[in-house]
Computed example of a mutant assay.
Amino acid sequence: MDKNKNFHLFGAIIAAGILSFSGVLIETAMNVTFPLLIQEFRVTTSGIQWVTTIYLLMISVIVPISSYLNQNFSARNLFITANLFFLLGVLINCFSSAFSLLLLGRLLQGVGTGIGLPLMFHIILTKAPAEKRGMMMGIGTLTTSIAPAIGPTYGGLISNLLNWRYIYIF
């Protein structure tokens, strides 16, 4: 029974880690697409910065209230909510025909990532056995810290070979 419980714990950490990884990967991948987005949406350089700013702003608003969310909602409900926000943002961004829609999608992705990042560590710190917390924290940190390293390369390859929208599709 304990092995089964640990398996579900590991799966929950990996699932929350994939959400966090995806959020950070897409955030850093989009930075290299700014010249393309400026042309496509006919916005200024300072305007295009909102693609990153609104995403990071939403994360910085949501993360501080994560303690409240964790106390009042189950990890399962928070995970589902985070994924719904994130996936809705991805869908909007895939098909955005206006810059305002792209920003709306980024806002929703920021909310999803802002819920998902602290949720992963909350699961580790409250559910993992004390002797496995270090390893679990390492796995959780690895999933999010590797994304900024590969995000710009991923974004550059995808936008050069296909279209910037495929950053979201993949």
Rank of each mutant, 00 (worst) to 15 (best):
K5E: 12
L25C: 02
L88N: 03
T53I: 11
T33Q: 00
L84F: 15
A130L: 14
L87Q: 06
A29M: 03
A82H: 09
P129V: 00
I18W: 01
T126R: 03
L142M: 15
G155Y: 00
C94G: 11
S74W: 15
F85C: 05
I62P: 02
W50M: 10
Q71F: 10
T53A: 10
L36D: 15
N72C: 09
M137T: 05
L108F: 09
I124H: 02
R76Q: 14
D2A: 14
G155I: 00
S22C: 08
L125F: 13
T113F: 07
I92N: 00
R76A: 03
S67H: 13
Q71T: 07
V111K: 02
P118Q: 09
G140H: 04
H8G: 04
L119D: 08
L157M: 12
I169Q: 04
V51A: 04
K3G: 08
M136I: 05
T81L: 11
L104V: 14
L102F: 01
G89I: 00
Y168R: 00
V111W: 02
R133G: 06
M136D: 07
T52M: 15
M58K: 04
M136A: 13
T141H: 10
G138M: 13
Y68T: 13
L56I: 13
W164S: 00
A75R: 14
I115S: 06
T126M: 12
L162I: 05
I18G: 00
M137A: 06
L37G: 05
I18L: 14
S100I: 14
P148Q: 11
L104P: 06
S22G: 07
Q39E: 15
K3V: 06
N160I: 01
S145D: 11
A130N: 10
M30W: 04
A130S: 12
P129M: 01
F99G: 00
F10T: 10
A75P: 06
T113Y: 04
I146V: 15
P152Y: 03
N72S: 12
T153F: 12
C94R: 08
G138Q: 11
I150T: 11
I146M: 09
Q109F: 04
W50A: 05
L19S: 07
T141Y: 09
F86W: 01
I48L: 01
I158R: 02
L119R: 05
L162R: 10
G114I: 04
I123W: 09
T144N: 07
L103G: 08
G138Y: 14
I150P: 11
V111Y: 01
F99K: 01
F10R: 01
L19G: 04
T45P: 12
R42Q: 15
I38H: 05
S67R: 10
A16V: 05
G23K: 09
P64D: 11
L107I: 14
G114E: 01
L88R: 01
G155S: 00
D2R: 08
F79A: 11
Y154W: 07
I92W: 04
S67T: 13
T33I: 01
L101G: 08
S46L: 04
T45F: 13
L142N: 12
L107S: 07
